[in-house]
Design a protein around this nucleic acid. Structure first.
Length: 595
RNA sequence: GGUCCGGUAGCUCAACUGGAUAGAGCAUCAGAUUUCUAAUCUGACGGUUCGGGGUUCGAUUCCCUGCCGGAUCACCA
């Protein structure tokens, strides 16, 4: 049985016996490092029940547990805190259970399904740092839900239509001279992004000209010839003009090729892709239905609105006066479509930046008003922006950090440092490249995932490239070190059996600490899922690696003469390696055999 | 202006949802490799948790208020 549950039961029994009362809520927390023990019961709240002072209450419970529980060997009381020392035999048996459990850390399928949306880029420019946070987060949350037993569907909606792509198309038509990814050697998404920039430059120049000639700024925005061309293309596209659709398909195709290699390098995947060009007309019927049933209302000009003032929000337009859809309309349709495609999902997770919080609040409210009960299980996984030391990323000002460039730089830096350390003599060039990629991406992912998603974070390139300290490579290194031990043990033909471990009766503090740490793994996993926070896993993995390194440093394994202890330490190391690997994979980070 | 986030060591982040003397990493300084990988480990230094009130045995956490930063409030997406 789980140690924490067992301990809680014993404490409840103690309270029942001693004070003749039952308690449901027990405040059990890890013991501070400065005191002896691993679990601490906060006794202030129990003072009411015991009708004694917190310290006397703590002492009474402590004495009872030592005498009767069979798992508590010692205790000490500091103010109202009861610090409990769990018997080493119990720790050994906790470890035995984990060691014997081949599926430790992965919960059995629970029959539930969930959908996670992430990435969802526009198709007019390449992915950047913000997308990296989005992709790593979404991927990781999906993996975490898989690990707790969900059947997870990863999807994205690709914003492949609209004025943004038409801008790139317009600029390409004017200035492209037939340039293609093949002819230019450029990655498709970068090529299309190049024309988006060209569009912007020309647009600004044309506006400046018009304004200089006496046109008002508002008029200039509309009259600039290149903008007129883009708008014209958008209309033609909607009218299914063949040449325009052809150009659109071609340029989007370039972008998809580019994206697909970027996704591959990122290590993310999707079960199903939704395209805005297929879904942007959805939702309209739904809105009209809502209009009939009185959920929405129509204004004099014919536009359709929802009034959310009763929910503390505003009025929101759902259909323009000309009857066309807006973004919200489309999202209503897409949400419903997804529940038709995957009837068993109980909810959706939308991984989208926090600038769209209002949008999702409104979306979920509308879906609820339309009578979709699953709306309550929809969650906006809202994450903060990634800032640079120079401030906010601005595509217009060219301060965006490109995703492909960044991944390359990280891999290059990892390679440089790997070569400098010179531990890879017997590796082939291909192996060094593979290792560098693993380390560079590991550093990047860990850097972006270790922060609470909700919070805005700072991306300092110099710090992100650090491979020491609170980093992914620190954990990768710990894993590689353990693997070296395992290899040596195998070479020595040491194969710790579950039974042999049972012969260990006393533990060193560092060993106890490591068992204590991964004993919490499943709780952490559930917490990460509940909070939609890979940061919980990242910090857990770091703590475990740190705890293991302390053990590693203070206790030489192979010089141990007691066979049971030797076996225990190797088994312990193996479990740490497995748990590190497992938890890092939840972050999309791979760990090496050696580094 | 309304609404919603956030403000913790010089810097980047934690703090088990109200618990002990608020913890890590980086940076700085001082140490540790005849022994399993030093991308490691051990110490030292570093704090009025933005300010001010309140709630209680106890507040970084909850409430009020002020300051600072950000997001959002389109017949854009």
């Amino acid at each position: 049985m789980n140690l924490d549950i067992q301990l809680r039961n014993e404490i409840q029994k103690a309270v029942q016996t001693l004070f003749n009362q039952s308690v449901e809520q027990l405040q059990l927390q890890p013991t501070n490092a400065e005191f002896e023990g691993s679990h601490t019961l906060v006794c202030f709240p129990l003072a009411k029940i015991s009708k004694k002072g917190p310290e006397q209450t703590a002492t009474a419970i402590g004495e009872y547990l030592v005498a009767n529980s069979g798992i508590v060997s010692k205790f000490n009381v500091v103010k109202g805190f009861l610090n409990l020392v769990i018997a080493d035999s119990v720790w050994v048996s906790v470890f035995k259970d984990i060691y014997a459990d081949k599926n430790f850390g992965t919960l059995a399928p629970n029959g539930q399904e969930i959908m996670v949306e992430y990435s969802s880029p526009n198709t007019n420019k390449p992915l950047h740092l913000g997308h990296l946070r989005n992709n790593f987060l979404g991927y990781s949350v999906a993996e975490i839900y898989k690990a707790i037993g969900y059947n997870v569907h990863k999807v994205q909606i690709i914003n492949d239509r609209g004025i943004h792509i038409c801008k790139s198309m317009a600029a390409w038509q004017l200035f492209g001279n037939g340039e293609t990814p093949q002819s230019s050697g450029m990655k498709g998404d970068h090529l299309v992004g190049k024309y988006y920039v060209i569009f912007d430059k020309n647009y600004k120049a044309q506006m400046a000209e018009l304004i200089a000639a006496g046109t008002s700024e508002a008029d200039a925005e509309k009259q600039a010839p290149i903008m007129k061309l883009a708008v014209d293309m958008l209309q033609k596209w909607e009218a299914k003009d063949e040449a325009t659709v052809q150009l659109w398909k071609t340029m989007n195709g370039w972008v998809y090729d580019g994206f697909s290699s970027t996704y591959k390098r990122m290590g993310v995947d999707f079960e199903k892709l939704y395209y805005e060009s297929n879904t942007y007309l959805l939702g309209k019927e739904e809105v009209l239905r809502g209009l009939e049933s009185g959920v929405f209302f129509k204004k004099e000009d014919g536009s359709v609105w929802v009034d959310l003032s009763g929910d503390g929000l505003d009025q929101k337009v759902l259909l323009r006066s000309d009857g066309t859809s807006v973004y919200m309309t489309q999202d209503i349709g897409t949400a419903i479509l997804r529940f038709r495609d995957f009837p068993k999902i109980e909810g959706q997770v939308y991984t989208v930046g926090n600038e769209q919080e209002y949008h999702f609040k409104v979306l979920f409210l509308i879906l609820k008003k339309l009578g979709y009960t699953w709306a309550e299980k929809c969650y906006h996984l809202s994450y903060g922006m990634v800032d640079l030391p120079t401030g906010k990323m601005k595509s217009r000002e060219g301060t965006v950090v490109d995703a492909d460039d960044l991944m390359q730089e990280m891999a290059d830096e990892a390679e440089k440092q790997t070569r400098e350390l010179g531990k890879i003599e017997e590796s082939t060039e291909a192996e060094i490249k593979e290792l560098s990629e693993m380390i560079g991406l590991g550093a990047l992912k860990f850097f972006l995932l270790k922060v609470d998603p909700k919070k805005r974070m700072l991306f300092d390139p110099n710090e992100s490239i650090q491979l020491q300290g609170h980093t992914g490579p620190f954990i990768q290194y710990t894993h590689a070190r353990i693997r070296a031990i395992i290899r040596k043990a195998e070479a020595m033909n040491i194969k710790p059996s579950v039974e042999s471990i049972g012969n260990v009766h006393t533990l060193e503090p560092a060993e106890r600490e490591v068992v204590f740490l991964f004993n919490n793994y499943v709780a952490k996993l559930k917490e990460a899922a509940r909070e939609y926070s890979p940061a919980v896993i990242a910090n857990f993995a770091f703590d475990l690696a740190k705890g293991y390194n302390q053990f590693y440093q203070s206790i030489p394994i192979f010089s141990e003469t007691d066979v049971a202890k030797l076996n225990f330490r190797i088994a312990l190391s193996k479990v740490v390696a497995d748990v590190l690997k497992k938890s890092m994979l939840l972050l999309g980070i791979h760990v090496p055999e050696r580094m």
